[in-house]
Write a protein that binds this DNA or RNA. Structure first.
Lengths: 356, 356
DNA sequence: GATACAGTCTTTATCGGTAAAGTCATGTTG
DNA sequence: CAACATGACTTTACCGATAAAGACTGTATC
């Protein structure tokens, strides 16, 4: 970033023959000086190439910056690649824009996280889906700014806006079980930040460091257990990435054993992965929903347009984003920490074929 | 935003019996003091509830904030709702993250634009697809910060990263004409910020204040003219919003006249609108591509998954975002102001049916 | 034993702005 | 006509931090 000689408010004042305060007022309190002088001040500013009062100076004096920070703890390719995160940000932005605040995105994935979090000139922080022991979240709390965690671990000193992932996941699983499905495949996004790809055993599931996915798996398993299915009826494939391609890779693994080994239904722990599973099924010549039922989670927009339209758990991430921002903008407001979900049944799930 | 009594660096220094500088160094230059003292300082900070050096203070003293600003001049619902914008932001974020910078989103649609732009504590600005006479863009230039415009009007004092919209659009139109299509419908996103919905006449097209769409229309019309089609062969419907629903609303209008009035091909000026046109065609019982050819523009990810996959103009908005950020981070770098495009021919366009 | 030197900390001198209170004409009013 | 607004500026007094240079201490070098 190149430095150019900055013109300061003081120089404009001197050139204009007025006090610094008058120049400041010309920008911030037009009613404090005559329109005529104001014009002269602004004209002088233009001539000198003064770019307006420095935001840093103001922020220092005022003690606030009118900026909210969002901590994106995902590796970046996922933050913007994920429609859910985008909806969430959309909601946050709607709320901040309405309040006249700007929004700062803090990509807190790398080892620069600590520094970026510490150095952000913000009045409040939203941590989006951090891992339970995310160092960026710890850094955020250390700043002692008003903080809201979304879809993350309950944390002392911070509201946590989320949904009942366990119950919602259980509802999806129960729906499939009620339809007669007995062999369930699960595709989940990463459980630990270690890049693991493969079957996730019980221990790995229970110790997952991403609360959201730990709870969704718990819900799937709980519903299966409550319906009397043996643990072996639910196989869980973990995929470290979160794209449609990841979903279809996972789908190919889950669906490749032909015959009675193959699950008749797949629970994808996000819609993006579910879209990939649909793709994998198509590639393998399986008809959804006749040969395979598929459910997602999130209800992103594309799911309603998918072929076939996807049965999924609806949650309103836009509203959760708004809620997070509102809590920071006006403490005490907000629509409730646990947001509602509901199962949306579309064409991707039908009754399981009778066993021959 | 509540104010709490802030602890300052000076208080930590006093409590610790060291100079303010030493506390500052404990955070920013660990090599400037003994590890032992550093621990004592940090421990004292913890006890006092000191949240670390204030970003505003640092920004003021250092004369930079290590933040890049992105001016989102779209009405907000479109910024995050538009996959193209999201890709662009994704690219910007990748570059800023790599450089250890944060990103500030400045929603500059409303009348608060001027103030938000003026007050943003950033080292550089990226204006994303501003209208030709966008007041937020003017405000940005007035700040005399390093500025890059993306997909917008060429502007004195700012690089403009874009594509050759005219040529790319012409290529798409030529493709359809080469396939034998003679009646073309066009769906375009808003040409003026006046919320108009309807047929856009020549005057309105030529005076469009959004350069991107003015040029795409120009390209479509130019290709048609060069192929000897009469002006009446290309009807242009303008839709003020930019969602799949908007596209399908436009599609219903364009496709409702049955018989020889109905276009055999629709050029949508974005993929999002094209997805809507596909939906409208489906609803009207038209088979794409047999009864109707459809092209998009942008090549968003979903277009490849659409049914049928969409013929479209590919552009790499991710890379354009990266390019914009790079130009600000290290002036003189960047991959070229005019980024390449190419026509991606998929299944949504085939030869026009022979006239009976 | 004087010189250089690395390692630690402190001093100095700002960075650019703004809230709040003060000044000083010029009406205004009972 | 004295007391009192009002409007249009100015004065005062910080906001919280850091770069650069200075000071002091102990140790290696010749």
């Amino acid at each position: 970033m190149r430095d150019r000689a900055r013109v300061t408010l003081a120089e404009v004042a001197a050139r204009c023959g007025v006090s610094r305060m008058t120049v400041s007022n010309a920008y911030n309190h037009p009613d404090q000086l005559s329109a005529e002088l104001r014009q002269r001040v602004l004209a002088t500013a233009e001539v000198l190439g003064y770019g307006g009062p420095s935001a840093a100076g103001r922020a220092l004096k005022r003690g606030r910056s009118d900026v909210l920070g969002v901590l994106l703890t995902e590796a970046l390719p996922y933050a913007f690649g994920d429609p859910g995160t985008v909806s969430f940000l959309h909601g946050v932005t709607a709320a901040t824009a309405a309040a006249g605040l700007a929004l700062q995105l803090i990509p807190a994935a790398a080892e620069t996280a600590e520094r970026l979090v510490r150095d952000a000139a913000v009045d409040g922080l939203i941590a989006h889906s951090p891992a339970d022991d995310d160092p960026a979240l710890a850094a955020a709390l250390r700043r002692r700014l008003p903080t809201v965690v979304s879809g993350g671990p309950a944390t002392a000193g911070a509201d946590c806006v989320t949904i009942d992932n366990d119950a919602a996941a259980a509802a999806a699983a129960r729906h499939l079980i009620d339809l007669g499905h007995r062999r369930l495949g699960v595709v989940t996004w990463r459980l630990h930040p270690d890049g693991f790809t493969g079957w996730a055993d019980q221990a790995r599931q229970a110790s997952a460091r991403y609360e959201v996915f730990r709870l969704r798996l718990l819900g799937y398993q709980r519903a299966a257990a409550e319906a009397g299915l043996p643990p072996s009826a639910v196989r869980v494939w973990e995929q470290p990435g979160h794209s449609v391609a990841d979903g279809s890779a996972a789908g190919r693994v889950l669906l490749s054993p032909p015959g009675p080994e193959r699950p008749t239904a797949v629970l994808a722990s996000t819609d993006v992965l579910a879209l990939g599973v649909l793709q994998a099924a198509r590639e393998l010549g399986l008809d959804v929903p006749r040969d395979l039922a598929v459910t997602g989670f999130d209800d992103i927009e594309e799911s309603g347009r998918a072929v076939p339209p996807l049965t999924t758990v609806h949650q309103d991430l836009y509203q959760q984003g708004q809620d997070c921002a509102c809590r920071l903008i006006a403490p005490g407001t907000g629509t409730g920490l646990v947001h509602p979900t509901r199962l949306i049944i579309r064409a991707s799930t039908v009754r399981a074929p009778e066993p021959p």
